[in-house]
């Protein structure tokens, strides 16, 4: 008998597409949270596949810290233009100007924590009832128990103790007024799955992911890009290095790795041999072992 078997990437893809379509069916006003990183690019690509030949029926929302790599913004505009989707931007600078949040001070100042407020305000402003995100359960311990359909109370908070059980392919998107959901279609993917899928599908990525020459400096063992948003200490010399980024976030808290990987194949080989999780290069998680969980409870992605 012929064997009807899907490869694991095809099965993960089928699962993600099912989830995305479920969002379209169960919610009135969903959006895709788009950071310009490979995970949210993958989610946007999957959304395209889910509704083909129709256009993706959701806008893409970018929470702009104002401290982005210019490459990210350039890529974002091109990618969303090609998709024919609508871009909505939530600005952290505006939240600061409006006095809703205060800028951090000092050498390690970052706007990463401030994003949460801007995100929640943006959700409220546009009345999104479901926001699709590219978070994966393998990224961090606190995410291992995250649901596909993650319920948020009217304050946007996540209650890890009171999550709805998720069984089979039956997703419950029912909610009370003011509540909303975060939905994570690629929950079951690992970093390697995402890279292999990008290669298989020929998905375009921002140039930051590939090796390039850049002015950088080292801080606490992390290589940071030289930029106007970070105050360098006198002891932190600017040097030229060939680097790439494993994740793409705010310039103030995204570390680079020294690498000569200039193609997807090179990157995959590097990821396979790598001995640090990708979050290991993010300064924001190092603050404490439970850092991610604290931010998630407050409504971070």
């Amino acid at each position: 008998m012929k064997s009807y078997n899907l490869t694991h990437l095809k099965e993960l893809e089928a699962e993600a597409i099912f989830i995305i379509r479920e969002v379209a069916a169960q919610f009135e006003n969903p959006a895709i949270l788009f950071s310009g990183g490979k995970d949210s690019i993958t989610v946007a690509h999957l959304a395209r596949k889910a509704f083909y030949p129709a256009k993706v029926p959701f806008p893409l929302v970018h929470i702009d810290t104002g401290h982005n790599f210019p490459e990210t913004i350039e890529f974002r505009d091109k990618f969303i233009g090609e998709m024919g989707a609508k871009l909505l931007v939530g600005s952290v600078q505006e939240s600061i100007d409006e006095g809703k949040v205060a800028e951090e001070k000092g050498y390690n100042a970052s706007r990463n924590g401030l994003q949460t407020v801007t995100l929640l305000d943006t959700i409220e402003k546009y009345k999104f009832d479901a926001c699709l995100g590219g978070a994966r359960r393998d990224e961090e311990k606190a995410r291992a128990k995250e649901r596909f359909f993650s319920h948020r109370d009217e304050f946007g908070q996540w209650d890890p103790k009171n999550q709805r059980p998720e069984l089979w392919n039956l997703f419950n998107g029912k909610k009370n007024f003011g509540e909303n959901f975060r939905v994570f279609p690629i929950s079951n993917w690992t970093e390697m799955d995402v890279w292999q899928y990008i290669l298989m599908e020929g998905i375009e990525l921002p140039s930051l992911y590939f090796a390039h020459k850049r002015e950088v400096f080292e801080r606490d063992g992390t290589i940071m890009a030289k930029c106007d948003f970070i105050e360098q200490k006198d002891s932190e010399d600017t040097i030229n290095k060939t680097v790439r980024f494993r994740t793409i976030g705010d310039m103030t808290c995204t570390g680079a790795v020294e690498s000569s990987a200039s193609t997807l194949e090179d990157i995959i080989e590097e990821v396979a041999a790598s001995r640090l999780t990708e979050r290991g290069t993010r300064a924001d998680d190092k603050r404490s072992e439970a850092a991610m969980e604290d931010r998630k409870k407050q409504g971070y992605f």
Partner: peptide, 22 residues
Amino acid sequence: TDGLRDEREQGITIDVAYRYFA
């Protein structure tokens, strides 16, 4: 395989957690 902090503190696992390897 320890999950959330509350559980870490209580030393028990109270919810389904998902792990991956290949």
